[in-house]
Amino acid sequence: MITVDNVTVGYGTAGFIKAVDQVSLTINDNEILGIAGESGSGKSTLMRAVYGDFSTGLRIQSGTVTGRFEDARTGKVIEAQSSQFAPLWWDQLSYIPQGSMSVLNPLMKIEAQVVDGLPAREKQGSSRALRQRIADFLAGFGLEETVLDAYPHQLSGGMRQRVLVAIAAFVNPRLILADEPTTALDVVVQKKILLMMVEIQRRQRNSLVLVSHDLGVHYQITDRLVIMYQGRIVEQGPTAEVFANPQHDYTKNLIASLPRLHGKRAVEVVGASA
């Protein structure tokens, strides 16, 4: 689906500050891929390069990010470099931003914000039928139809984040990128949203990339896990395998730092040995 080939990404027009350093990665069809790493490890930058969001001075210095979108509904196959992805946004790709107060337009009702940007194929039929489909979709997230007529400030943080997941998923794209979608939420809401994302992925059989610094999240839902450290991928493999048998020192430290039910958590400065 997406092939990241030896790519170096960074910021700056005059100088160049490397954020992702010679990374190669494949995102397969019908899988949930997790990307873990500490703040500043380059995971968000890598996501932006994959999504094709080259604003604010982000650019690829070397290497390529190639996408191949096979749409079973139309039988069309689109192949493009990520710098050419913009026309595919909210059609073949969608994205779930890191939840915060200000991701939704404060002056637009939720229904309008779901509809705004939808590809033509999802908008077919009357606006009443569309509203009904959106309402049914939101019901799957435990959100009532009244949410559609609400403004963002009338919803709680957890509701807003569910709305953001629903907006991205309702597009029914081939690839969904989620950048820390559950970071600001309590564990109960977090778990609900994660399970919902898994269920939608299984139903739509597309690819979901989940960026999070929370290893617990990755353990629960990802099929494959990529560990990033200082702009490089230090380890990748099936999630269960990475957890059972970590190869890199940094990964070992990360896993050791998770709280345990029995015994003591390993206390060591993360990254000191890497």
Binding site: A86, L88, W89, W90, P97, S102, N105, D116
Partner: peptide, 12 residues
Amino acid sequence: EEFVRYARLKGL
């Protein structure tokens, strides 16, 4: 603002 960036990333 984030909602403007989000709208742009929606391809609007």
